[in-house]
């Protein structure tokens, strides 16, 4: 049974009709037409669908639309822009991180929340904060370089 929901995404409120058990991912992609985040597994195992809900990284593939409520959703597009990039976005470009780039949402959104709360993290803390995220192309070395670079930029 479809119901009405108001979704606050990147600062704009959108009204959509959806089943209450529909994951947020499909609202973002199918209803709002955002070309981020991505479907990787649908099981919260890879991170490709990661967005922020009230500042916390969540997996939008298993978070139902009814659980989002009036929480503020921020996607990669809402994190920064070419004019006002987030340090991680700058670092990703500097380090030329992605190969295919399909996994980007998971790494950047997770790292953004981590670096906001953890200044000057050690290498080991960075690795551990990103545990469980997947990159099939194997760009791990570049990802770690970029997160370290962003950490330095964020002081």
């Amino acid at each position: 049974m479809k119901q009405s929901y108001s979704l606050n995404v990147n600062g704009t409120v959108h009204k959509i009709e959806a089943d209450e058990d529909m994951p947020l991912l499909y609202a973002l992609r199918d209803d709002l037409g955002l070309n981020n985040p991505h479907f990787g597994c649908g099981l919260a195992q890879c991170g490709a669908c990661t967005v922020h809900l009230d500042g916390r990284p969540i997996r939008s593939c298993i978070t139902t639309i009814s659980d989002v409520g009036d929480g503020r959703v921020v996607t990669l597009a809402g994190l920064g822009t070419p004019e006002r990039p987030h340090p991680l976005q700058t670092a990703y470009i500097e380090e030329q991180v992605p190969q295919c780039g399909y996994c980007i949402n998971g790494w950047i959104m997770t790292a953004a929340a981590f670096l906001r709360d953890n200044k000057k993290p050690s290498d080991e803390q960075i690795r551990s904060a990103l545990e469980g995220l997947k990159c099939r192309c194997g760009t791990h070395m570049s990802i770690l370089r970029a997160v370290k670079r962003a950490a330095a930029m964020m002081g």
Binding site: G33, N35, H38, A77, P85, Y92, I93, P98, G101
Partner: peptide, 16 residues
């Protein structure tokens, strides 16, 4: 790279 990190990039999954 930049279009990918600013979510301005179309993957095959984004084609409508």
């Amino acid at each position: 790279v930049a279009p990918r990190v600013f979510a301005q990039f179309d993957f095959i999954t984004d084609i409508k």
